[in-house]
Design a protein around this nucleic acid. Structure first.
Length: 307
DNA sequence: GGCCAGGCTAGCA
DNA sequence: TGCTAGCATGGC
């Protein structure tokens, strides 16, 4: 199956690819030669997707090629999932209009014109990834994520090449804590992760239902889980549910980015970041994503210059 | 070798 | 309500 989507312009898929390739350890979303190769898993079915952009940033066309059994029957589902994950139907002009009081963010938006937040492939993945990433550096977080994928991730070999998908909640719920602690998870992190997966499996945390709730209710229900604090919930809202105004203001990476781009002498406090975000009404999530992205691009540039 | 990393909990005042 | 020790391992 090969089909095309027309994202709301401007849109630059190469920026999404840059974001997805921010770690060399990433093995679910494979970026190579200007295209993304990834598995799409839904309802026990696995499809291999190749996604790339044709046309320009101002007149974008996104091409989606999908392989798998009876893929034609699932075309609509696959396309809607791609549109959701890459926020293709959300207008950047609304974002631009709502950050005009902030020249710094406006400049970054100009510099990375066509960037839209990239969501995780599922709500559960965003929650699991946030738990994994708590209080540890990103590189180590990727190592833990890959251990989890080795243990219970989905693997599919096509034409001699193996592709991986992040495990769903059922697979994680079936894990023992020891299986994770033997792979360098701390005891607590193993408990938080497996217990969250079990909460989803038992229906204690109904993610489909949660999607329909208000932002406040989402945070309330998520933080009711042991191991899920405000940061984790906000992260999940931003990268899982795609809430445009989710705002993990306490995030260390965001505070560092604000420190860099807004010229702070010392790392700004969470309160200072929250105050800054008032200049991006209803779009704090996108502002956060732009700052994360710009920071990772700067770091990559510095590393390249230093090597 | 020490401090920091895309935090959170439990215990205490 | 607000503060802090402890968690645990890797990177720099």
């Amino acid at each position: 199956m090969k089909t095309k989507l027309r994202p709301l312009p401007p849109y630059d898929f190469s920026l999404a690819l840059s974001y997805l390739s921010r770690s060399s350890l990433e093995k679910v979303d494979v970026v190579d030669g200007g295209q993304l190769t990834t598995l799409s898993v839904s309802d026990q079915r696995v499809f291999l997707l190749r996604i790339y952009q044709e046309g320009s940033v101002e007149d974008p066309v996104l091409v989606i090629e999908a392989e798998g059994k009876e893929v034609e029957r699932f075309t609509e589902e696959i396309l809607s999932e791609v549109a959701r994950r890459f926020q293709l139907d959300v207008s950047l002009s609304d974002f631009y209009a709502n950050i005009k009081e902030d020249p710094v963010l406006l400049q970054l938006a100009h510099q990375h014109r066509g960037l839209k937040p990239v969501l995780a492939s599922s709500i559960f993945e965003s929650l699991a990834w946030a738990i994994i990433g708590q209080q540890i550096n990103i590189r180590f977080a990727y190592q833990l994520k890959n251990s989890l994928i080795d243990l219970v991730g989905l693997k599919k070999t096509i034409k001699g090449k193996t592709y991986f998908a992040f495990p769903d909640s059922a697979r994680v719920a079936a894990l023992s804590y020891d299986a994770l602690t033997s792979r360098k998870f701390s005891r607590r992190k193993a408990e938080y992760l497996v217990d969250a997966a079990r909460a989803v499996e038992s229906g204690l945390l109904d993610l489909a239902d949660l999607a329909e709730c208000s932002q406040g209710e989402k945070v309330k229900r998520l933080t009711a889980l042991r191991g899920v604090g405000r940061w984790t919930a906000e992260y999940c809202l931003l990268r899982g549910f795609g809430c445009q105004d989710a705002f993990p203001a306490g995030d260390i990476g965001l505070r560092n980015a604000v420190g860099r781009f807004y010229g702070y002498q010392n790392q700004p406090t969470e309160d200072a970041v929250r105050e800054l975000g008032e200049k991006w009404p209803r779009w704090q999530g996108w502002g956060t994503f732009y700052l994360w992205f710009a920071q990772s691009m700067e770091k990559r540039r510095e590393k390249k210059a230093g090597s």
